[in-house]
Structures are given as structure tokens and as C-alpha cells.
């Protein structure tokens, strides 16, 4: 396992994840939604706000990782790496344990949150059709 080390700039995102809320950056000047690591908007605004996102997303791409070059993840293969596009626009990398998730690009996904480890909750996305079935994370 690898956990994120929040910076001062990104801590609100991870604090919110512990509370099962997905925050993204939002530009008060032009209304754009931005990735949590972006510190200013392309319109020139740098006083960005955090805003809660819908949690809805679509799968842009996916791959099953079967080997890892870092020891901390070698015990977790195979797992599935995801790239999702949130309904608001910003794109996030995430992952699901195991393989065989029957994923297809474009499918609706829904945010989920891991139980906190060392005070950090990883943000997951699971196929929307599996939400509530208890099958999302396998």
C-alpha cells in the first residue's frame, strides 16, 4: 500500500475523503472545475475554492496491473488502475482490487471511499451499476 502525503494545498481534499465527500477545485471567476492539485485556473484566477462534486463519473480507461516496480504494491497485484472523468470535468486516477471487473470505457462510475488508514481515506470509483450491491470492491 502507498498512501498520499497531503500538502497544505491538497489537505482539504483528503480531509473531506475521510468524511466520504469528494471535493474538487472550483474557479469562482469562470466557473471551471479543476483537479485538486491545480493551484490556479487557466483564466488567470488563483483564489480557487473547494466545492463538493456529484461523485458521478465515467470511465475513460483502465488497465490491469500485474507487476509493480515498488515493493509497497507488489503484494497487491493484480489490481485494476482506472482513469475516470468526473461529471464536473476533472479527471482522477483510481484503482480497484483484483481483475475481471468487466469494465468498458465510457461506463458510469460512482465515487466510494476506503476506510481511513493512518488517517487517510483513498478515493475509489466503482461501476455505478454495482453501487449498493456490495459487489463494487470485490
Amino acid at each position: 500500500m502507498i498512501l498520499p502525503e497531503p500538502s497544505d494545498a491538497t489537505r482539504p481534499f483528503w480531509d473531506a475523503a475521510v468524511q466520504k465527500r469528494l471535493l474538487l477545485r472550483h474557479c469562482p471567476r469562470c466557473g471551471s472545475w479543476l483537479h485538486p492539485q491545480l493551484l490556479f485556473c487557466g483564466c488567470g484566477e488563483w483564489r480557487l475554492e473547494w466545492r463538493e462534486a456529484s461523485g458521478e463519473a465515467r470511465l475513460l480507461s483502465h488497465t490491469v496491473a500485474r507487476r509493480m516496480p515498488v515493493p509497497a504494491l507488489q503484494g497487491e497485484v493484480p489490481f485494476t488502475v482506472l482513469l475516470v472523468r468526473t461529471r464536473e470535468g476533472p479527471q482522477l486516477v483510481s484503482s480497484l482490487p483484483g481483475d475481471g471487473h468487466a469494465l468498458r470505457c465510457g461506463m458510469p462510475m460512482r465515487v466510494a471511499f476506503d476506510p481511513p488508514v493512518e488517517g487517510v481515506a483513498l478515493v475509489r470509483f466503482i461501476p455505478a451499476e454495482r453501487v449498493g450491491t456490495g459487489d463494487g470492491m470485490r
Binding site: P6, Q37, V81, V93
Partner: peptide
Amino acid sequence: GEFTAPYGVV
């Protein structure tokens, strides 16, 4: 990075 390595993009 912070938003990628935890999910296996290493």
C-alpha cells in the same frame, strides 16, 4: 505522485 502512486501509477 500524491494522486497517482496510491492507485498504482508508479
